[in-house]
């Protein structure tokens, strides 16, 4: 079962993704939390510790993986992978060279390839992304390119995932698949 979770900020995407991962893993299945954010300052570090606290007791192995997402598969095809988030992964890949202020134009292809490889290689994978496409603002070209790239990753994942969910105030809206597909015994 492959799931894409999108939606606005603080709508419960990570929490829902963690619940789903538990459901897919069953009682003793391995669950890998692929944390893609690379913390740069105290605010980031505080957010990371809050997330770690929230996951405590859920039995996740945390994998800090800011780039090259497909390498998460080293944990084997049978684990449940929770990638949180596609948004941070793309940002890291676009700025993979700390010496350069320029965004890497090949980053989006690298991300897409890695994400699709993970989706194809894992039995269960959940991808968390952010919906940043419905506001009235003229962005600078870097931000606009970033939005365009993230949308391209979202669409690539949506096409291979069994379920695509938009979380709205914590409530799931199913754009592909249905809640019934998540019932134990029905997952592929």
């Amino acid at each position: 079962m492959k799931v894409l979770l999108s939606g606005g900020c603080k709508n419960g995407k990570t929490g829902t993704a963690a619940d789903l991962a538990l459901r897919l893993a069953g009682t003793d299945g391995r669950r890998i939390y692929a944390a893609t954010m690379i913390p740069y300052d105290d605010e980031d570090r505080a957010r990371v510790s809050r997330h770690i606290e929230e996951r405590a007791g859920m039995g996740f192995e945390t994998l800090e993986i800011g780039r090259n997402i497909a390498s998460a598969l080293d944990a084997g095809p049978d684990a449940v992978y929770l990638v949180d988030s596609v948004t941070a992964l793309l940002l890291n890949e676009m700025f993979s060279d700390p010496e350069s202020a320029e965004a890497d134009p090949h980053a989006v292809d690298r991300c897409r390839e890695g994400l699709l490889r993970l989706a194809a290689g894992a039995k269960h994978a959940i991808f968390v992304t952010d919906y940043i496409y419905s506001d009235a603002e003229r962005y600078d070209s870097f931000t606009e390119t970033y939005r365009k790239n993230l949308a391209s990753l979202d669409r690539a994942l949506a096409s291979v995932c069994d379920i695509v969910i938009e979380l709205c105030a914590g409530i799931p809206v199913f754009h592909k698949g249905s809640a019934a597909d998540l019932t134990p015994g029905r997952e592929s």
Binding site: Y133, S134, D135, A136, E137, R138
Partner: peptide, 22 residues
Amino acid sequence: CRDLFCGVVPMGAEMRAWREAA
């Protein structure tokens, strides 16, 4: 048409008017 009216109310008057008109 792009739905550009879901985000935060923009600071700029022109963007605000754009959002409402759209």
